[in-house]
């Protein structure tokens, strides 16, 4: 598995440590600390960790676990379960019939705080779609950060997708509107809108993002709103996700920078509280380093 291969580079003591068993169905104190540390170090946070540990306790008792191997398997199952593997993780980026029966492009809006890798994700997503034989149009609605439009244009060239751009400082909503309009007229399959990074605490900027989505919705529905979350993010990730969901009703999460040492455990909390599934993971700077999220592989990487 790809994700696992990449993540095997990162180190963790948990895989090597032998869980000490106290008879059937319970662990010794050191082992519990071990389990807890693994989860805390993966950024699951204190509350989620407690919850997982409690569930593991119940599970160990129920299964009358006898070996360390079984205990580890139980932990793995509990973690996978907590990631809700049943959630639909398909990215809705393909054209479909609009209200009037005419085919309209799939519209994907990409948002997140500064520096999480939105533009890179947009570029990679374009690349995946183009490789799949789709026609993709990119909307450079990050008109704030210096040279963001150029950065996306470079990605567009690499991926083979056209870019609709506005002047620096232009209203991002109008750029997004134009991009979707052009995409509909040209009959492309997918329009990807890259937005400026914004901290969720800046209400003015969040309003602006809300407006981008509203304005697009005047033409066609936004099929997918992806929140790009950096795997290195700690407990603040939940705050980000809450606010973004409130403003643009995010439909999926892209977890980036998983190729480093960070485990991205905050998504447990985010998925559980908001019910918004992680759909994609970013595994590096290469154009092809974007993969579907697989709970089992993610958990294996976390426990490795």
């Amino acid at each position: 598995m790809r994700l696992r291969g990449r993540l095997a580079k990162s180190r963790s003591a948990f895989g090597q440590s032998l869980l000490g068993l106290l008879g059937a169905g319970d662990l010794d104190e050191d082992s519990w600390t071990d389990v807890e540390d693994t989860l805390l170090l993966a950024d699951l946070g204190a509350a989620t960790t407690t919850e997982i540990v409690d569930r593991l306790r119940a599970e160990l008792a129920a299964r009358a676990v006898r070996t360390a191997e079984q205990a580890r398997a139980a932990l793995r199952d509990v973690l996978i379960e907590a990631l809700r593997p049943e959630l639909d993780r398909a990215v809705r980026a393909l054209p479909h019939n609009g209200a009037d029966g005419v085919s309209v492009p799939g519209v994907v809006l990409i948002a997140g705080v500064n520096g999480t890798g939105k533009t890179t994700t947009t570029g990679k997503l374009a690349r995946v779609l183009v490789a799949d034989g789709r026609r993709v149009l990119l909307g450079a609605a990050d008109t704030f950060r210096a040279a963001a439009v150029e950065q996306l244009s470079t990605w567009g060239e690499r991926a083979g997708a056209e870019v609709v751009r506005g002047a620096e400082g232009a209203d991002p909503a109008s750029v997004a509107f134009d991009a979707v309009k052009r995409g509909s007229v040209d009959g492309v399959d997918t329009v990807l809108i890259d937005t400026a990074g914004r901290l969720h605490t800046k209400t003015g900027l969040m309003d602006e993002l809300g407006k981008v989505k509203r304005v697009i919705s005047k033409q066609t529905e936004v099929d997918e709103v992806l929140l790009v979350l950096d795997a290195t993010t700690g407990q603040n990730g939940i705050m980000q996700a809450r606010v973004f969901r409130e403003v643009v009703d995010i439909t999926g999460i892209v977890l980036t920078k998983l190729d480093g040492t960070a485990k991205g455990g905050i998504v447990f909390h985010v998925q559980r509280e908001l019910g918004v599934p992680v759909k994609l993971v970013g595994l590096g700077e290469g154009v092809d380093d974007l993969a579907p999220f697989e709970p089992a592989a993610f958990v294996d990487a976390l426990l490795d």
Binding site: L41, T232, T233, G234, T261, A262, K263
Partner: peptide, 15 residues
């Protein structure tokens, strides 16, 4: 370093 970073702060700063 980003103020929002989580537990990875240690491995990264050590690296």
């Amino acid at each position: 370093i980003d103020a929002m970073i989580g537990q990875d702060a240690v491995s990264t700063s050590e690296a």
